[in-house]
Each structure stands twice: as C-alpha cells, then as structure tokens.
C-alpha cells in the first residue's frame, strides 16, 4: 500500500471504511422529503380500520354489520364467514 501523503489523500477522498462520512440519507430527511408508508398516496385509495375485541378471552356470538355498511363512504366490512351472520 502507498503511504505517501498523496496516497493518503487519494484514499481519504474515497470516503471508505473507517471514515465518519456524513449520511447520504440526511438531506431528504431534514427537508421533510422522506417517503414513509403513510406518505404513499395512490389514486383511489380506501382506508382500512380494525374492529378490535374489548375482551382478552371471549366467544363471539354474533357480528352485525348492517349499520356500518349503511354509512355513506363505507365500502365493506369483513369478518370470517362462519360468524358473519345477520
């Protein structure tokens, strides 16, 4: 390996292993230009939300979706077929 001042300068210019190089990612993050999942905007996107159990252990007797489906702007309510009675 070269050890002259010129060699060292050449190696340093590469910003290789051992260099505390500034992060390539930062310019976009500090300007609010990151692209996280919630930033993804596709035309016609619908939004999913989950009905969750208030109980830690319980049998599901019935699920009634009628009122929810009647709400303007609701496209679907999913549950497993065997319990989606009514």
């Amino acid at each position: 390996m070269g050890t002259t001042a010129e060699d060292i300068a050449r190696a340093e210019k590469l910003e290789g292993i051992g260099c505390s190089r500034k992060r390539k990612e930062d310019p976009r993050f500090v300007q609010g230009k990151g692209n996280y999942v919630d930033d993804v905007k596709l035309p016609g996107t619908l939004f999913a939300d989950m009905v969750r159990s208030p109980y830690a252990h319980a049998r599901i007797i019935s699920i009634n979706k009628k009122k929810a489906l009647a709400l303007k702007g609701v496209h679907a309510v999913y549950s497993l077929p065997m319990i989606s009675n009514l």
């Binding site: 500034k22 992060r23 990612e25 930062d26 310019p27 976009r28 993050f29 500090v30 300007q31 609010g32 990151g34 996280y36």
Partner: peptide
C-alpha cells in the same frame, strides 16, 4: 419543515443536524 430552507439553502439547523449526526430513521 418544508418551509425551513430558503431558496434551496438549508437552514443552519438542518445543516447542523447533518453535521452532528442528529438523526437516524428521520421520523
């Protein structure tokens, strides 16, 4: 945050966050 930089020049805070490694995931 989009209003911090002026005419394409980063605000001193933005520059300092890069310089001093003040961010990781960026969220």
């Amino acid at each position: 945050v989009e209003g911090l930089a002026t005419n394409g020049e980063l605000h001193p805070l933005q520059q300092a966050f890069i310089q001093d490694h003040g961010l990781q995931c960026g969220f």
